[in-house]
Design a protein around this nucleic acid. Structure first.
Length: 426
RNA sequence: CGGAAAGUAGCUUAAUUUGGUAGAGCACUUGGUUCGGGACCAAGAGGUCGUGGGUUCAAAUCCCAUCUUUCCGACCA
């Protein structure tokens, strides 16, 4: 991609939002645009990061046998009435509806009903179990208060997986499998996850855990000791001590430390709540009709994006100047800059990277070198490749934006280096 | 929905207290000089002061209403 073709404009950053400086950079530079409270458009660069995140999640869910599907976003009201969740979601004001003169449709805030329905007459025998369906798609929630830019919007991208098992024992196995996939996926994004005991809210079920990343910008407070933890909201639950002991084997919370965190995912062992209320069942080995033991597992992809930006800001002279995203989620690996004399060489290098399938940006504008470097950082590109007067022909200076470290290597070595990186990631 | 703030150019904002021709920095356009860390000079363009009403000779400024946004609470990925 060439900067001149991207419809990008270099913007000098002004004073940043103190709570969410990273996302404020996105806003000030036009990488996201706000249309209303909790409503944002993404430009191409942020969209590419979103795509990388999706790919990573899918890869790890496919590895444990997840099957990708797609549920409708417009869902008939009757579907929500069939599980008896319609009234709650409407009364809480969370669910948005679209009305015609004949029908009313719900804009999907989640998809337990839709997926349970999907399994109806499809998963009919114990021989087909276990099975897990997942999707990554838009969700709509008319949150009473949106906040933190991408952290909580009215419209957001969510990964949601729904598992079907024969019994509670199998459900627990699936639950642990998915949970491990979460840890693997987030590790690949350089985010270290913490799972904590949580309240299961309006989703229901027996136990649930929130998947947290420690962050000062987080909305939640957790109690955690490096191994076990809980969301402080659990303490408001009736009989919380009994709940913690029974579901999570947590008996003593006095030694846990209080930390700020952001919830990126939430996993639930639902049991038979939906299969019973919607009466969707399968035939067991003994020819009896039994309800599915279900689990549901979500990841706020939009929120992951927000955290990736907030957790990867870089500073110069104590001032936040941009981001250095991990290669696994970077929109582009390199940002190529040259002086006038080496323009042709830069174009050639750019084409060689493209031929090697290395995602790369060429800055072909007439901006000053300082401005170009700033732009690379504002876009979150991890490496800047400079063809200038401090290196010889066929040499390139590589700057790693995370720590400003520099190395001079031959153009050929640079190409094979990033080719290797590309292969190790995909 | 309760509590608190704020809406002036694409962004950050001044002028509001004390009513009197809306001003700046960045960004943008043109010309010139620069060209390895957000260059400089000159010229230029860009505003229904959120919206509606009221008071007044006169309203960005005072009053009323309304819309929107942000923050704290309940809710959530």
């Amino acid at each position: 991609m060439k900067v001149s073709k991207m419809g990008l404009k270099s913007v000098k950053l002004t004073e940043l939002d103190k709570m969410y400086p990273g996302q404020d950079i996105l806003l000030q530079t036009g990488q996201i645009k706000q249309y209303g409270s909790g409503l944002y458009a993404y430009d191409n660069v942020v969209l590419r990061v979103e795509d990388r995140v999706e790919e990573i999640i899918k890869k790890h869910m496919d590895k444990i046998g997840g099957i990708e599907v797609e549920m409708p976003l417009l869902q008939p009201s009757e579907l929500w009435k069939s599980s008896n969740r319609y009234d709650k979601y409407i009364n809480d004001g969370v669910m948005l509806t679209v009305k015609t003169d004949k029908n009313e449709f719900c804009l999907a805030p989640t998809a337990e009903e839709a997926v349970t329905k999907f399994a109806e007459n499809r998963i009919t025998s114990y021989k087909q179990l276990p099975v897990s369906f997942y999707q990554i798609g838009k969700k709509f929630r008319n949150e009473i208060r949106n906040r933190g830019y991408l952290y909580r919007g009215k419209e957001f991208l969510m990964f949601d997986l729904y598992s079907f098992d024969k019994n509670e024992e199998d459900l627990n196995k699936t639950y642990d499998l998915v949970k491990q996939a979460y840890f693997d996926a987030f590790k690949e994004m350089n985010l270290s996850l913490v799972s904590v005991a949580a309240d299961n809210g309006s989703i229901g079920g027996t136990r649930s855990e929130e998947m947290m990343v420690l962050s000062e910008s987080g909305e939640d407070t957790i109690l955690y000791d490096g191994k076990v933890g809980l969301n402080t909201e659990v303490l408001e639950k009736e009989n919380y001590q009994e709940y913690l002991k029974k579901e999570y084997n947590i008996t003593d919370i006095s030694n846990l430390s209080k930390l700020k965190a952001i919830e990126l995912g939430h996993i639930f062992a639902l049991g038979t709540k939906y299969s019973e209320s919607m009466n969707i069942k399968y035939v067991a080995e003994d020819n009896s009709i039994k309800p599915f033991y279900m689990g549901c597992y979500g990841i706020g992809v939009s929120r992951v994006l927000g955290v990736l930006y907030e957790n990867n800001v870089i500073k110069a002279n104590d001032e936040i100047v941009g981001f250095s995203l991990p290669l696994s989620v970077a929109p582009y690996y390199l940002y190529i800059i040259s002086n006038k004399e080496r323009e042709a060489e830069a174009l050639k290098l750019y084409e060689q990277f493209l031929a090697a399938k290395v995602p790369v940006i060429l800055d072909d504008t007439n901006d000053s070198i300082g401005k170009k470097i700033r732009n690379a950082k504002v876009l979150g590109i991890p490496y800047i490749a400079i063809l200038g007067n401090s290196t010889n022909e066929n040499e390139v200076e590589l700057e790693y934006t995370k720590d400003d470290s520099k190395e001079v290597i031959s153009v050929d070595d640079a190409i094979s280096k990033f080719k290797e990186i590309k292969n190790s990631i995909c």
